[in-house]
Every structure is written in structure tokens, then in C-alpha cells.
Design a protein around this nucleic acid. Structure first.
Length: 509
RNA sequence: CGGGGUGUAGCGCAGCUUGGUAGCGCGCUUGACUGGGGGUCAAGAGGUCGCAGGUUCAAAUCCUGUCACCCCGACCA
């Protein structure tokens, strides 16, 4: 039986969107559910999310945040308090209007008991958390108040994709209140930095930190910052956001405190979040045509050991050998945690077994049979390397170097992703070149657009209207105004006006 | 929300034009041979053909409606 040469069909270059879905399926991470736009996250996908949560949660605690939990339901009137905010979310809110079901004679259930005030299923929690903050905060001594919540939210999206955009998704939302604007801005930037560090160190996903333009700003925010990553189809993925909300939400929720002078003041607030969308980003940053490739720091399993047991040999001896290697590895640490090892002794064919782990993206695969046992060695394959690049390694050497090896894999996939981004990032100074950069060479009606373009760095001093026009022409938007990229003043290629610095343009998810 | 496409076994598909109550590959189960990259052979299990109506002696097939998913847009903090 001849199988395709890649584990995933179609390949990235053949049909990127379809490839993505096949990777999710082949790695057994998630599937669609009977509920429109909602996904079922399967154990392998959820384990990756749990690892993300665990690392992020530690970072939040280190920066002085505490976890709490607020209601899923938000009274309609709460949402109405901040005008811009309502407008931003109104179109995608799920609304609960009844609190009871009644059975009809023909056995159907119909909603009954209409609520006096409809409840909105939270699309985000600024307003409901604001109500609590207003109660909790009386004095400047109560500030800063730094809270985080791990929760699900619902945004009724028109078009959904597993992990990237679903009607319901899991996330964390941080909400803080401060006595001064400066302190709140500092918090906003600090959390952006936490996200960037997490993305780069833990996910091995290079990101650009920057501020959003007016058009892309969070409804009700004064400043919105984001981290932007380039996916392998060269589109940008907004992977985390951090908002400086000024006093807009404190005014709406009446979050007030008495300052040191006894003056009644409005608090300055922030909010920031990342979601299960990061899992999508992880896939589109590292996965290849054989499936998922996981950064060791997030891999649910670091090392899988596949015993090669021949009937004629002594299976128990092989198993003992494998288990002892597993035990030694488990006693070793990587990234401050014990190394996660699985001995896959399932009674299925070896080839199948190996492919399953390849598709799931496990960083290191060991095949251990009688020959290795005789040599006191292991046979090792790295997921970040070519399928054929396997080699025998003395057991002791393997165990002693495992931590370095995992870090090397972590570093190498980061380097590869960064290289990819750099290869598809262009500094552009003319409108013609800009339009050419973002126009695909081949384009068929109702077909996926082939990968083209990337990140374009141009000067820009244009208006929201001009940005809209470019979005209309090319489906390209300003992803962010980078906060840490060196850029000298220049001329905006669209308006001919002076511009203080370059911005990042891209098509986006 | 507009345009296009697709819904038939867990997955991928054929059958539909020319109605006669369902088939292929992979996967799954059992057994044997195997076993260092998706192996071979044999025997099995599995489907109210997305759903609801209609036409007909008879519907996967024709008609109407509806739902879901995918692609291209619009929209999307």
C-alpha cells in the first residue's frame, strides 16, 4: 500500500487552510462539535493548553496578580454603560432571555419564564469585574488591585476555525486598577512583555510588540497593544493583547477611591488576555507536512519510548530496559519541571505507532529494541529534524544530555520561525511596491489565495479612512506600530507626508 | 450577511444525469505470519445516504425547504 510521502494531505503549499485542519485532526487535538461554531478540545490539545496555562499563571503570580472568578452572565445594562464598548461587542453577543423550559404535549421543550433583564453571555468581563472593583476599592490603599480570571467567553462569530476563532473559547483575562495613569500604563506594558516573553521563550514563536491603530483598538480602550506573530502562510496572528483603559471603565462602573489628599478620584484600569487561539498559533508557526511540531516547553510528552519487541526475543527484558530509561529521564528536569516520558507499549504495529507520535509533534522519539539493549544505547529521532535523521546514542550520554537536547530543539524551532519571518518581511518605501508585494501572482475565483506577501514595514501617517481603503484594496491592515523596533522618521508612501516611524502591515487572521 | 462548493460507515470518496431499498480504499474487530518507519493473508463488524416535506408502485438518485461544514468576500477589540 503506497502512502503519501507526507503524513498530512494536502501540504501547506497545496492548501494551507485545509492543511491546518488536517494537522489538528491528525494530532488528535480538537474536533468540531454538534454546537455551531464550538469545538471539542481533545486531551492532546487540552494538555498543550494546560501547559500554557501553567506557565502563564506562574508569570502572572510572579508579577503580583491573583486569580478570581466572575459570573458568566452579564446583565444587559452593565454592557450598556460604556458606549464604545457596547458598539464593539453588540454584534456578537449571545443573550439569555429565559430561565426555564416547559414540556409541550408533543414532548418538545420550549423556553418559559422570561427574564426581566436579559443576560449576556460574557464576550469579555470588563463591565462585570468593574462592578466588583467599584465595591472593593474605597481608598488609594486598596490600589493597585491586580486580578486575573481563567474563563470561557462567547463571541458569536460568523466564520469559525478550530482554535483560531470559535464561538466559545478559553482564555485568561487580567483586570487591574491603579491610582495613577502612569502606573496603569506601566502595567499594560509589563503584561505585553509577559506575553511576548511567553510567546518567544515557551512557544518558540517570535513576535512583534506594538500598539494598535485607532481602527483596531479595543472598544473603550485608550491604547491597545498586541503581540503579532507570522504564520507559515505569512499572515499575521494577533496572539495577545493588553489594553490601557484610562478612566473609561472606571467612569462607567464608578470605580472611585479617596487619594492621599482626601480627594475622590477615578481609578485607572487595564485589561489583557490570551486565549486558546495561541494553540492555533503554535500549530501554524511550527507544524510541517507531517503534522504538529511541539516546542519542548509545551509538549505534553517530551520523550516517547517505543519498545521494539520481536517475538523471538525476551519482551520483558526490553520492557524493563525501556522502563528504566523512562525512570531515569523522569528524574531529570527540563524548564524547572520533571521530564515527561511515555513508554508506548500498546499492541499496535510499530510503524503506525511512530507515525502517530510524529503527527502529534512529540519532540523526541526513541525506538528501543534488542540491538540497543545489547549496546546499552537508544535509537533516537528528533521531530524538528528530517524523518531520516535518526541515530543511535549511548544510553548514558542520552540521559545526561537530555535537558540540553530539549533546549536545543526549543531554540532551533524558534530560530527557524524567526528566519521565516525575516525572509518574508520587507521594508517598503513606495506605494507601487507595497501593492505589488500584497498581490498574489495567481488568483482563482473562490479558491484559496496562494501564500504571498508577508510583513511590510512602511512609514505611515495616514488616517483611518486611508487604512480602510488599503484594507479594501488588498485585505491588508496595520498590524501594529512596533514599540521596540528601531526606526527613523521618514516619508509616508501613501500620503507623501512626514511620518515618525514605520508600521507593520500584513494580512491577518 | 452575500457568492460558490460539499454533506453517503470513524476518515477519504464513488454511485445521482438515465429512480428499482448501497459500494470502494483506509481505519476498526478476530486469528495467523510479521515486526528497527504507515507490512501480508484470512475471516468479520459497521450506514434510517445531513434533516424535514413532496412527487412516485418505488427516492441516496427528481422537486421544495432547512441545517451544518468548507472556500472567497464582508465582518471581526
Amino acid at each position: 500500500m503506497s502512502k503519501p510521502s507526507t503524513a498530512i494531505t494536502p501540504t501547506r503549499s497545496e492548501n494551507y487552510a485545509e492543511w491546518y485542519q488536517q494537522v489538528v485532526r491528525a494530532a488528535d487535538m480538537a474536533e468540531t462539535s454538534p454546537v455551531r461554531g464550538c469545538m471539542v478540545i481533545k486531551p492532546w490539545g487540552y494538555a498543550i493548553w494546560e501547559n500554557m496555562q501553567s506557565i502563564l499563571d506562574g508569570m502572572f503570580k510572579e508579577t503580583g496578580h491573583q486569580n478570581a472568578y466572575f459570573p458568566l452572565f452579564i446583565p444587559l445594562s452593565f454592557l450598556e454603560k460604556e458606549a464604545e464598548h457596547v458598539e464593539g461587542f453588540a454584534k456578537e453577543c449571545a443573550v439569555v432571555t429565559h430561565h426555564r423550559l416547559e414540556a409541550t404535549p408533543d414532548g418538545r421543550l420550549v423556553p418559559a419564564g422570561e427574564l426581566e433583564e436579559p443576560l449576556v453571555v460574557r464576550p469579555t468581563s470588563e463591565t462585570i469585574i468593574g462592578a466588583s472593583f467599584a465595591k472593593w476599592i474605597q481608598s488609594y490603599r486598596d490600589l493597585p488591585l491586580k486580578i486575573n480570571q481563567w474563563a470561557n467567553v462567547v463571541r458569536w462569530e460568523m466564520r469559525t476555525r478550530l482554535f483560531l476563532r470559535t464561538a466559545e473559547f478559553l482564555w485568561q483575562e487580567g483586570h487591574t486598577a491603579h491610582a495613577t495613569s502612569e502606573e496603569a500604563v506601566e502595567e499594560t506594558m509589563q503584561m505585553l512583555d509577559v506575553y511576548a516573553t511567553f510567546a518567544e521563550d515557551s512557544m518558540a514563536m517570535p513576535v512583534i510588540r506594538g500598539e494598535k491603530t485607532e481602527g483596531e483598538r479595543f472598544p473603550g480602550a485608550v491604547h491597545t497593544y498586541s503581540i503579532e506573530a507570522m504564520m507559515q502562510d505569512r499572515k499575521a496572528l494577533q496572539s495577545g493583547t493588553s489594553h490601557f483603559l484610562g478612566q473609561n471603565f472606571s467612569r462607567a462602573a464608578q470605580i472611585q477611591f479617596l487619594d492621599e489628599q482626601g480627594q475622590q478620584e477615578l481609578a485607572w484600569t487595564t485589561s489583557w488576555g490570551v486565549s486558546t487561539r495561541l494553540v492555533g498559533g503554535l500549530i501554524m508557526t511550527h507544524a510541517d507536512d507531517d503534522g504538529l511540531v511541539l516546542p519542548p516547553k509545551l509538549a505534553p510528552i517530551h520523550v516517547v519510548i517505543i519498545p521494539i519487541v520481536h517475538k523471538a526475543d525476551d519482551p520483558d527484558a526490553i520492557m524493563r530496559y525501556c522502563n528504566s530509561i523512562a525512570a531515569e529521564l523522569s528524574a531529570t528536569r527540563f524548564d524547572d519541571r520533571p521530564i515527561r516520558v511515555e513508554v508506548d507499549d500498546r499492541d499496535i504495529r510499530g510503524g503506525d505507532k511512530a507515525w502517530q507520535w510524529i503527527k502529534r509533534g512529540v519532540p523526541i522519539r526513541l525506538e528501543v529494541g534488542p540491538r540497543d539493549m545489547a549496546d546499552d544505547a537508544v535509537f533516537m529521532a528528533r521531530r524538528d529534524k528530517g524523518l531520516k535523521e535518526k541515530s543511535g546514542v549511548p544510553r548514558q550520554q542520552f540521559i545526561e544530555t537530555i535537558t540540553d537536547l530539549l533546549q536545543e530543539i526549543q531554540d532551533s524551532i524558534y530560530a527557524r520561525a524567526l528566519e521565516f519571518r525575516q525572509a518574508h518581511t520587507r521594508t517598503i518605501d513606495s506605494k507601487e511596491e507595497f501593492y505589488e508585494f500584497f498581490t498574489p501572482e495567481h488568483r482563482e475565483e473562490n479558491k484559496p489565495v496562494p501564500a504571498h506577501g508577508g510583513f511590510a514595514l512602511t512609514h505611515f501617517n495616514g488616517s483611518v479612512e486611508l487604512e480602510d481603503q488599503i484594507a479594501k484594496d488588498l485585505a491588508v491592515t496595520v498590524r501594529c506600530i512596533p514599540t521596540e523596533m528601531e526606526s527613523e522618521p521618514g516619508t509616508c508612501p501613501f500620503t507623501g507626508q512626514p511620518s515618525p516611524q514605520r508600521v507593520v502591515w500584513a494580512k491577518s487572521y
